[in-house]
Design a protein around this nucleic acid. Structure first.
Lengths: 192, 192
DNA sequence: AAAGAACGTTGATATAGATCAACGTTTTCA
DNA sequence: TGAAAACGTTGATCTATATCAACGTTCTTT
């Protein structure tokens, strides 16, 4: 399970990992498996672990007064899972995170993130992941405030087509901030 | 102008700046002033500089087919200004960024960001700024997909009340993804 | 293989918020 | 200091999308 993580780090960072780095990584990252539908984080808890997703898919969502779920993030391989604000600030999370597919994660605690500062390649990886998240967030916000339901769907299909394969329509709809009925109509009118 | 930046770094990082670090910072960060309404970035350009905002306020927005502006980010003191995706990927930006107030920035090029890796305190600052951005983005997305116009306004008033002081209502409305008329109505019904 | 759950579609109706328009107030700047 | 621009409000109407409902299809699970 570490192998693919290490391979990923070496692919995306210019500084290679030293043997001692690999040892350190194995010490601080704890592997964890989640079954489909299993929670990684529940509303009200402090997010104690961030997880690098080795395999699988998760969804992060809030639940409103009416009990509706609103998908804030969809998370697949090579992204971080977790509520960063809760993790960093040690505040209770307002989100739930659960596995949508059987998932393998490498989890790390806040205390152990300090250890990673000793590994230059990890620095670089963390920065790149932050950038990746930042790009995705900015696109998403721009879509949310400036586009119609149809345009948002198009933009998602463009930017992250894998999502459309891996999640059912009601999840995609929630992610786009529309209802499943509207998404269904957008899709059928688009085909023509 | 560097003084307040250096003070800020020392306040927010656990590792203090060494004298050599300060020298380095003065070499790579170039001060720049913007007059109100002046562009920091225009659509179609590659974002060559990220700017740490020492004083002032900017807005980052996209312009749609009808010529409407949609505010993707509002940026004030102690945040980064710039389109990170364009900066990192060297792709033309789809956003405009301009000064809403007279603004002072410390700008840095992509090439020079590498130099900063030598300064531990800067690492820490960058990570903290990334976190701060990440928190704000997540809140914003959750608001956009799960809240009504009124709830979004409330959430903004809660999370970033200074924005309401510093930007006029039509800017805030655009930031919230609603029209200025709707914001005006939300505000007047709220008073009662 | 049967039964229920999850998923997706389609139609009828309701509504939050957009759009269009007019007007008063405040700020800017020549 | 006076005209124009920017800003904010209120009203009437329109529209994209939500909601409610019914139903067919496709997975899961036993």
């Amino acid at each position: 399970m570490y192998d693919s993580f290490i391979k990923y780090i070496n692919t995306y960072s210019t500084t290679p990992l030293r043997d001692s780095d690999i040892e350190l990584i194995k010490q601080v990252f704890v592997p964890r498996k989640l079954r489909k539908r299993q929670y990684f984080l529940q509303e009200g808890e402090v997010c104690k672990y961030m997880g690098f997703i080795v395999k699988g898919a998760l969804r992060q969502y809030s639940v409103d007064e009416k009990g509706n779920e609103h998908i804030v993030r969809l998370q697949i391989e090579d992204w971080w899972a977790g509520d960063r604000e809760s993790f960093v600030m040690l505040t209770p999370s307002i989100y739930n995170i659960d596995a949508w597919e059987d998932t393998e994660l490498l989890t790390i605690t806040k205390a152990d993130t300090i250890t990673l500062d000793q590994i230059p390649a990890m620095h670089e990886l963390m920065r790149k992941l932050d950038e990746k998240h930042s790009f995705a967030y900015t696109k998403r916000i721009n879509a949310a405030i400036s586009m119609s339901a149809e345009q948002r769907y198009e933009a998602l299909a463009q930017a992250y087509p894998e999502f459309l394969q891996r999640f059912p329509q009601h999840i995609i709809a929630s992610y786009l901030g529309i209802t499943k009925e509207t998404l269904s109509r957008v899709r059928s009118s688009r085909k023509k």
